[in-house]
């Protein structure tokens, strides 16, 4: 293994795209994502002494970036007062007064593996995630895009597990409906 040196300019050159891609996959905002890359590189430069050398520099940088991203989301959560009482139930529009579906869920024929590769689908998905109310969106991003478990989200957002479960449930329902209308074609099979 070649001896690594602290060289943030070189890191930017070699790993900038990769770090940005990682940040974008979690944040979906070009400006915030590139800010996170910058913060991670500067933090890595200042904390170079902590680099143990038993992983690659790239892996080490990604680890720092991940922390920066989580810090950022945590701040977002604070400023948006995720701890406020759960608002009136937005999913009730999807169900009748007697508790059954207003619109019959249709069957989805594509495979998730092939859809991930479709730019068109990814655009629809981004739009649908973007339409989620912001609390749902933050929690959903942490859960499904960053891959955190509920326990970690609770700690980060300082909310109860039940609250997080409710938000994720609502996000799933809303996202499901949005994808059905905008991608799968929303057939009414009744």
């Amino acid at each position: 293994m070649t001896k690594e040196t602290s060289n943030p300019e070189l890191w930017l050159k070699d790993h900038g795209d990769y770090l940005y891609r990682y940040a974008m996959s979690k944040l979906h905002d070009e400006e915030v994502a590139s800010d996170m890359v910058q913060e991670a590189l500067l933090a890595a430069w200042k904390g170079w002494d902590n680099f143990a050398g038993n992983s690659s520099v790239k892996t080490w940088l990604v680890g720092i970036l991940k922390h920066k991203i989580i810090d950022h989301i945590r701040k977002e959560i604070r400023t948006r007062k995720l701890t406020e009482a759960v608002e009136s139930d937005p999913t009730s529009a999807l169900f009748n007064a007697n508790g059954s579906w207003v619109e019959a869920p249709a069957s989805w024929s594509d495979s998730p593996e092939s859809l991930v590769k479709s730019d068109q689908f990814n655009q629809v998905l981004q739009t649908c995630i973007g339409r989620l109310p912001e609390k749902q969106q933050i929690v959903f991003n942490l859960r499904e895009l960053i891959g955190e478990d509920t326990e970690t989200i609770c700690k980060e957002a300082d909310v109860t597990a039940t609250h997080v479960h409710v938000l994720i449930h609502r996000a799933r329902l809303a996202l499901r409906a949005c994808l059905e209308h905008n991608w799968f074609g929303g057939s009414r099979s009744s």
Partner: peptide
Amino acid sequence: ICLPEKARKRIEENI
């Protein structure tokens, strides 16, 4: 996707 040129420049300068 790649880091946009403008952002790269900015980060370079700040670093």
